[in-house]
Simulated assay, not measured.
Amino acid sequence: MWIEEKLKEIIAQAARDFDQIIAEERKIESSEDGTARGSHLDQILFDQKNEREQLWARLHELEDTFATSGSRKLFVLKVGAQVKYLSTLKVEQQELGKDLKEQIESVREIRRPKDETVNELQFKERLHSTVEQLHEALKTVDQELTDTTEALRREQTVLSECQQITEVLQQRVEEARQPEAMQRASIEAHETLNRLRDKHRTIMGELINFVNEHFPPHPVDGAPEMIDEGDEVDTCELAFLLEDLMNLAVLKPHDPYLTLIEGTYWSPYIETIIKAGIAVRDPENSSRIRLVDFRV
């Protein structure tokens, strides 16, 4: 807006100066003959004045058209908002400049003590704190070094044992690959098997003798108490019962239960082996029992 006003002011000043010059109607003498200027120059000046008046009339007409269309007002509003924003930025710049000057002055006003005692004390305090921190770090590093050394020692011990085991196994493998060693191993296995069989037969014989001595055959449940001499009666032998349980445990490990048929056993013998932990009942069917699995 101020640019347009300045431009108009310049144009108006030029027009006023021109009108003043024309109004004086000064006669300029010719430098050649000393007479007044010719009428041809006056005609030129008159034509320029008429042309200037026409231009001013056209300029005023354009201004009226511009103001009527509203564009002038919009331009003024836009320029006014920009000027207002620019003014706000200038004010903020001035305020920031003031704050900056105050901060600079405050920094310059910090007084440092002339006595170096304060500086020495501060330095000693920082040095003492640094030394303490380094001592703590050294303790931590020493502890980590001790733990790492102990772990390394254990790993070396394990490695040494593994190497010894590897050497022994390699020796065993080399020995086993030799025909004499294989034959000797086969003989030793056969002898071991024979010893186990002999030991098994001995144990079974002792078990049968013990059962026959302490648990003789007894009439089954439901047998008559009084029988005539020479009559046969069904009896329950604990040795046969244990033998059946062991055979089922070996031959049918997936289903080692023995079904107790009424009239073929004596209940006290069944309860004896169950309470002794030799046999257990089927949790789903109490008439079935199996040998306890004594394998380790």
Results as ranks from 00 to 15, higher is better:
Phe123Pro: 00
Phe123Asp: 05
Phe123Lys: 03
Lys124Glu: 09
Glu125Pro: 00
Glu125Ser: 04
Glu125Asp: 11
Arg126Ile: 05
Ser129Ile: 03
Ser129Leu: 10
Val131Met: 07
Val131Pro: 00
Val131His: 03
Val131Ala: 12
Val131Trp: 07
Leu134Ala: 11
His135Ala: 14
Glu136Ala: 12
Glu136Gly: 05
Ala137Met: 11
Lys139Cys: 13
Lys139Asp: 15
Val141His: 13
Val141Arg: 14
Asp142Leu: 15
Gln143Pro: 00
Gln143Ala: 15
Thr146Ala: 15
Asp147Met: 13
Asp147Cys: 03
Asp147Val: 11
Asp147Ile: 09
Thr148Phe: 08
Thr149Asn: 15
Thr149Lys: 14
Ala151Ile: 08
Leu152Tyr: 05
Arg153Ala: 07
Arg153Asp: 02
Arg154Lys: 13
Gln156Asp: 07
Thr157Leu: 09
Thr157Asn: 04
Thr157Ile: 09
Leu159Trp: 06
Ser160Leu: 04
Cys162Gly: 02
Gln163Tyr: 01
Ile165Lys: 05
Thr166Gly: 09
Thr166Phe: 02
Thr166Asn: 04
Thr166Val: 05
Glu167Pro: 00
Glu167Trp: 02
Glu167Gln: 10
Val168Pro: 00
Val168Arg: 15
Val168Lys: 11
Gln171Glu: 09
Gln171Gly: 04
Arg172Ser: 05
Arg172Ala: 04
Val173Ala: 08
Val173Asn: 07
Glu175Arg: 12
Glu175Pro: 00
Ala176Met: 03
Ala176Gln: 01
Arg177Pro: 00
Arg177Glu: 08
Gln178Trp: 03
Gln178Lys: 11
Gln178Pro: 01
Pro179Val: 06
Pro179Phe: 02
Glu180Tyr: 02
Ala181Leu: 01
Ala181Glu: 01
Ala181Phe: 05
Met182Arg: 12
Arg184Ala: 12
Arg184Ile: 01
Ala185Ser: 01
Ala185Leu: 04
Ala185Gly: 02
Ser186Gly: 01
Ile187Ser: 04
Ile187Gly: 04
Glu188Asn: 10
Glu188Lys: 12
Glu188Leu: 11
Ala189Cys: 02
His190Arg: 11
His190Lys: 12
Glu191Tyr: 10
Glu191Thr: 12
Asn194Met: 13
